[in-house]
Amino acid sequence: MTPATAEPRAIRWLLVALAVLLLGAFLLLPLAAVFTEALRRGWGPVVAALADPDAQAAIRLTLLVAAIAVPVNTLGGLAGAWCIARFTFPGRALLLALIELPFSVSPVISGLVWVLLFGAHGWFGPWLQAHDVQIVFAVPGLVLATLFVTFPFVARTLIPLMQEQGRAAEEAAATLGASGWQSFWRVTLPQIRWALLSGVLLCNARAMGEFGAVSVVSGHIRGETNTMPLHVEILYNEYQFVGAFAVAALLALLALVTLAAKALLERLGARRGGMA
């Protein structure tokens, strides 16, 4: 076997070591810091911080927001990816740009737009007030901001795969007399299911972890409109460092579980096909 690179062995080792070192410094070290800080005074304070009613409310709210945002964005992302990958139509490039928009917009703006639309002095503010509906500084605002920020994840994971797969299988299904639904359930979905799940998990990780956009629309009412990331900030600012790191560790743990599930799915998917 001829080596693919011409560099001497030492240089190669040096480069690998450098990469590992950087990875450790930027990813593993902070993660380790979160867990060690949380456990600095043992498990007792961690359990106490997580059992606090405000922390419980923050955890419930985070799960609620994710439970709404993820399914909605899964459907929306699926529909968007399908349109873009399978058809050419006027405005296709625009639709693609719109789907990717939340990636390029600062999270602060993603929050502020909802205040400008639904705040008391926003476009729909007076009407909402007259009808006694509260959107910003309440749960609906948090849901909207999270929906916006996490919108691209599912579509972005699906589009490259679906474009690569092409529409041959679906056309074959159509010539064999399959209806639209039959073709979707039996042909399209099985082809993309692993990529779809991985997109859903990424979307979920971001939905639970988002800080900037929800911070703008939250109003920071403890026990009412604080999600977990916001609760971490509050605890940190109140000098409750162990509590802050305990909630942060739980959040990190949720993210790690999500990523592990994603990796597992990708391996499963690679074995059974259906992944890019």
Binding site: I68, Q134, A138, V139, P140, L142, V143
Partner: peptide, 13 residues
């Protein structure tokens, strides 16, 4: 329409 969010907010208020 908003996935139950408004109703929840109304209760919270």
């Amino acid at each position: 329409a908003l996935g139950g969010g408004v109703a929840l907010a109304a209760r919270a208020q």
